[in-house]
Amino acid sequence: MAAVYGAPFLSAFGSSMRIHSSALQYFDAVRRAGSIREAARRLNVASSAVNRQILKLEAEIGTPLFDRNPSGVTLTSAGEILAHHVIVVLQDLDRTSAEIEALKGARVGHVAIAAVESVCPALLPSVLGNLRERAPRITVNAKMMGSALIPEALESGLADVGIAFNLPRYPDLRQVYVASFKLGAIMAPDHLLAKREEVSFASCSDHPLVFAASDLSIHQLLAPVMRQANRSVEPIMRTNSIELMHQLALKKPVIAFQTPIGLEKLIAAGDLVHVPLVGPVWSDLGVYVRAGRSLPAPVDLFLQILTGELQERERFEHDRH
């Protein structure tokens, strides 16, 4: 299994049967790459061949599909309409290919994941290890991004599965599962507040704090808690890096805020503690797919394993509270 963290996604048709027009496949590659030259490089074909297919497709449709500019290409309104159709067609091709392989007794396919950074240390590796044991010929590509960017990755076909915190309702997404985890203060085990069962934000504000940047869901979750505490607090740092928050929280007396997801190894090693905040401050970690899509067997298997892992962690979290 090839699990590539942070690498570009593979083309949706890279491992599928090629039973559709090359023009549609080349169109999708250009849409993803944002340029004909880069699409040709990824496809390992000549740029002229890609351009020829795009021009042929535009002639058949009778309108430009891309606006050409010095930095690359962008979809026209007609291109946006065609893109929606092509995403559906090529994703359905993946499902068909996987079903045919299943008839041969093989579990073969590919799963593209868009996920928040905090699932990387423990949750995602555990899921991928389980997947590899059950279906070693399924390949995986994972890209880390903020929760706010994940809906677009799913809607555009860049990802099959999204794992994100506190997403609002999107009509084009289906929530497969959601697990709730308590937001808490994270700190060194010898911190003055580390032995408490719960801690208030007001108590934390007496110490140097690290805040999540506004593009992380933690920021929105913590905002009402800060307003209720009625204290004006200036953090020593704001960052969108979960790993940097971890490293800063290791240094007493600094405090950061997060759910236990992503802290499993640090907590088990005794390097950090997670003290829940007072009150019903829960964060929802959801699993999403594009609405209306018939899922290929490899994606469905991945979802089964992922939801099982989340259910186990959620039970442990609720038992604590």
Rank of each mutant, 00 (worst) to 15 (best):
I186K: 09
R227D: 14
Q247W: 00
I186V: 13
H246G: 05
H246Q: 13
P235Q: 07
V199I: 11
F302D: 03
A291R: 12
Q247N: 14
L303P: 10
I267F: 01
V275C: 12
A291I: 01
Q228L: 03
V210K: 05
Q175G: 11
G184K: 10
E309V: 03
V254Q: 07
P189V: 10
R313I: 07
H207L: 12
H274L: 01
P224A: 06
M237I: 11
I236D: 00
L244D: 04
S180L: 06
F211C: 09
Y177Q: 14
P208N: 06
G308M: 02
P298H: 01
V275K: 13
H274K: 09
V287D: 05
S214M: 05
S205R: 03
L306Q: 11
R313L: 15
E264M: 11
F302N: 05
H191N: 11
A212K: 06
K252P: 01
L222W: 01
K252E: 13
R174P: 00
R196I: 00
Q311T: 12
V289A: 13
A269P: 00
F181C: 07
E198L: 09
I305Q: 06
L216Q: 12
S214R: 12
S283L: 02
K252V: 00
R174D: 12
V178M: 08
V299F: 03
H219K: 12
A229G: 05
E234W: 01
K195W: 04
L272K: 11
I305W: 06
L221T: 14
F211P: 03
I261P: 04
F201Q: 09
I242A: 15
L266I: 00
E309C: 04
L216S: 04
A291W: 06
D300E: 14
F211Q: 08
Q175S: 04
T239R: 11
F181D: 09
E312M: 10
E314T: 08
I242D: 10
I242S: 11
V281H: 15
A256D: 00
L222Q: 12
I255T: 07
V210F: 01
L303T: 05
H219Q: 07
G270D: 05
S241M: 02
K195D: 13
D190L: 01
Q247L: 02
A194C: 08
H191I: 04
G308F: 01
H219E: 09
R313D: 05
L303C: 07
R238A: 08
L295E: 14
H246S: 04
F181R: 12
V199L: 09
F211W: 09
P253N: 08
G308H: 03
S294A: 14
G279A: 08
L248P: 08
E243V: 00
D271I: 04
D190C: 02
L193V: 06
L193Q: 11
L295Q: 12
I218S: 10
P189C: 10
D190A: 08
E198F: 07
S214D: 12
H246E: 06
G262S: 10
P280W: 01
A202D: 06
Q228T: 10
D190G: 04
G279M: 03
A229N: 04
L266H: 10
L266T: 07
R196Q: 15
P280G: 07
T307M: 02
V176G: 12
L310Y: 04
F201L: 13
D271C: 00
A249F: 01
F201S: 08
A194G: 07
G279T: 04
V210S: 06
Q304T: 15
